[in-house]
Nucleic acid binder design. Sequence first.
DNA 1: TCTAAACTGTGTCCGTCAGATACAGAGTAC
DNA 2: GTACTCTGTATCTGACGGACACAGTTTAGA
Lengths: 240, 240
Amino acid sequence: METGGTDNRRLYELLWGTPSGPRRGPRPTLTLDAIARSGIAIADADGLDGLTMQRVAESLDVTKMALYRYVPGKAELVALMLETAMGEPPPPRTGADWRGQLDDWARQLFDRFRRHPWANAATVGPRLPGPNELAWLERVVAALTGTGLTGGEQLDVAVLLVGHARNLAQHATATAETPRQPREAGFATLLRGREERFPALDAALRSAAAEAAGDQALDFGLARILDGIEALIAARAATR
Amino acid sequence: METGGTDNRRLYELLWGTPSGPRRGPRPTLTLDAIARSGIAIADADGLDGLTMQRVAESLDVTKMALYRYVPGKAELVALMLETAMGEPPPPRTGADWRGQLDDWARQLFDRFRRHPWANAATVGPRLPGPNELAWLERVVAALTGTGLTGGEQLDVAVLLVGHARNLAQHATATAETPRQPREAGFATLLRGREERFPALDAALRSAAAEAAGDQALDFGLARILDGIEALIAARAATR
DNA sequence: TCTAAACTGTGTCCGTCAGATACAGAGTAC
DNA sequence: GTACTCTGTATCTGACGGACACAGTTTAGA
């Protein structure tokens, strides 16, 4: 999307820069945080399509161009919004083992993505991670320290979990936006009259409709992933 | 992105409609397939940002507005491109059990996403699946038929695997676009001087750098996921 | 064979948006 | 108090998606 000519130096300064001391000119009327919050509110309501420099400026009672004194461009604004919307990761649940912590962590991340549907689109493509994003990552790796997994594997686990949380949040918002209740309904109408072309899918949908177990894709995938990790950790412990 | 005012009826006709018989007016100079291919070539080279109705039209030697005789709008063009770029799923490997088939399937899907980096951005948000997309799904469910998983669980597996393939393809293209080789390099420079703030992450990165095991996130996650599924199938078989 | 209808590609126009630039006022350091 | 610097503003541009009316082309039906 707006992954194009992002000046990484200015973006780095924006995400990681420290608030500088007293300046010379007139006091700024805005804050980076206020701008980010305003943008988040708009994107939450109308998506990234509805996010316009003009609208953000209006909601802050300034001109559109005033925003460019704070933010290099729209792409950087979105990055800042993402960083703000994610926020700091919740503190790890005390007394929980690695599995409990990771389970918790993934659900919390899922929740953040759920609350800000635009965040999914904002995280496609290469991007510079902000402090909060690294802090989220730190939690995963910290939870896995001492499990016998290598550093690379710990990072792979993080990638895997982030992906699942993001993916499921997307599915959840997708089904929430359509009037029909479950995701299967859309598929079912699409399959009508084409059952012989997609026989296994048709059978699965009928079976799923009969079960009426609701949307458990998050739980299901998370359980499978954590089971797989647990098996690996157990195997490592056994060979040591 | 362009998930906005997509007319679902016209999109359905575009993706699922059959080529109609002889028409009245002059013969069309273009084909849906040619348009899609042209768009794919442009998006492969310059991403979705570089994809312009104007550019597609130029590459086909027609006016921009001529495209609107074939495609309702840009959003629908992207959907069509996605359907064309994914193509039909490869035939299932004969003689492979469900695990082999799913492993194969996920890697093939990963490969398609790798070849068309814009496909990641094109698959965010709710969308109407096309015939090819359903055919890919059908393969997963077919591979899992008879394993004892319920229909809903089979679909959940599909969601999980699609998510992993997409997620890893994104990571792969992200690291491919940056000049530095591994994804860890960017993190490492970012962590420089902040080691005490992200201690576990720092340790993991150092460990990963020492291992020098390259990028195995796809294999790692896939193995974990399939291990988890295998455990579930085994448990189901045991209780039956 | 002729005519009317339908479909195609084109030219022109509009609204929206991101961003560049030049400028006037505000506040601070010397 | 003066010069410098930073802020917000006003104005403008270029790119893009898409609407609309029109002219040319091909076929269906008389």
